[in-house]
Simulated scan of single mutants.
Amino acid sequence: MIRLSLFALLMSATTAAAFPVTVKSCDREVTFDAAPTRAISHDVNLTEMMLVLGLRDSMIGYTGISGWKTLDAEMRAGVAELPELAARYPTKEVMAGAEPDFFFAGWNYGMKVGGEVTPDTLEPFGIQTYELTESCIHIGPKAKSSMDDMYNDILNLGIIFGVEAKAAELVAGWKERLAGATAGVDRSAPLRVFVYDSGEEAPFTAGAYAMPTALIEAAGGTNIMNDLEKSWAEIGWEPVVERNPEVVVIVNYGDVTAEQKIAFMKESPAFASIDAVKNDRFVVLEYVEATPGPRNINAVEKLVAGFWGN
């Protein structure tokens, strides 16, 4: 243990002196001459990535949480003393006024294509941006969602902030935990799974490039909408009924509770023929578990238990 601790300290000292560093952020190469000291994160899952790396002292605030989500006790403690600079998406004026040197966000996670807050619009204010890997599909091609999307972000944040050893330790631990959670999963006949985020007239769901597809596959299922060439998107109910999911994964957040979403599906005659509804097979994931972040391993463990009764 002493040797490991000394090694970690030596690694930290070495990496802290290794600037400048360059990381790939979507289709850009971004170079940092020093670790950011006035960082802002957007959304609860990205903020957790910063906190789990021990970077709160390098942050001046966060955006995009209270407008949609309610923080649990762990997150409330984590962001204590940090101000929320915008309840939803920040404006360019808010960003410039806070004088950050770094923004951790993503496309549809604090930034919109063609919007007023983008890496290009922030650069003149001396604000460098790192983009969430899952979100890169909004600006160009990328591989289908995988657990590596989340690992990649943690490792890149480790490089940017000079905490590579901590990032590598976290990722190695998550991989080990994931392997243990999924070791007994029978993958010969993957369960058909539908992700229900929100919407009654038309459901908002996860496509090929959204994190739940990777979580479901890790747990031995297949997303029935994995041919949807998007991350998150609104679809019709017809393909859901036709593809007959055996399990429905509910994403829990916002004003409509998971229980209300389940009741809506169970009480609607239109869904009476769906296997998941007939057999009352629903698994609830919190928003922070279903989007890229440290709780993705919790999510897979929940899915394995819900799919296979483990």
Rank of each mutant, 00 (worst) to 15 (best):
residue 210 A to W: 09
residue 211 M to P: 02
residue 212 P to E: 02
residue 213 T to V: 02
residue 213 T to Q: 07
residue 214 A to W: 06
residue 215 L to I: 05
residue 216 I to F: 15
residue 217 E to T: 09
residue 219 A to S: 07
residue 220 G to H: 09
residue 221 G to D: 03
residue 222 T to E: 14
residue 223 N to Y: 09
residue 223 N to F: 04
residue 225 M to D: 05
residue 225 M to A: 11
residue 225 M to S: 04
residue 225 M to K: 08
residue 225 M to G: 00
residue 226 N to V: 08
residue 227 D to F: 10
residue 227 D to H: 11
residue 228 L to F: 12
residue 228 L to K: 14
residue 229 E to F: 03
residue 231 S to E: 13
residue 233 A to I: 11
residue 233 A to V: 10
residue 236 G to Q: 13
residue 237 W to P: 00
residue 238 E to P: 05
residue 239 P to Y: 08
residue 243 R to L: 07
residue 243 R to T: 05
residue 245 P to Y: 10
residue 246 E to F: 14
residue 247 V to C: 00
residue 249 V to G: 00
residue 249 V to A: 11
residue 252 N to H: 15
residue 253 Y to R: 03
residue 253 Y to P: 00
residue 255 D to Q: 13
residue 257 T to P: 02
residue 261 K to A: 05
residue 262 I to N: 01
residue 263 A to I: 03
residue 264 F to P: 00
residue 264 F to G: 01
residue 265 M to P: 00
residue 267 E to F: 07
residue 267 E to A: 06
residue 267 E to T: 07
residue 268 S to I: 09
residue 269 P to T: 01
residue 270 A to Q: 07
residue 271 F to V: 02
residue 271 F to D: 01
residue 272 A to S: 13
residue 273 S to Q: 14
residue 274 I to Q: 10
residue 276 A to C: 10
residue 278 K to N: 10
residue 280 D to F: 03
residue 282 F to Q: 02
residue 282 F to V: 01
residue 282 F to A: 05
residue 282 F to W: 05
residue 285 L to A: 08
residue 288 V to C: 10
residue 290 A to K: 15
residue 291 T to G: 09
residue 291 T to D: 15
residue 292 P to C: 08
residue 292 P to Q: 15
residue 293 G to I: 09
residue 293 G to D: 07
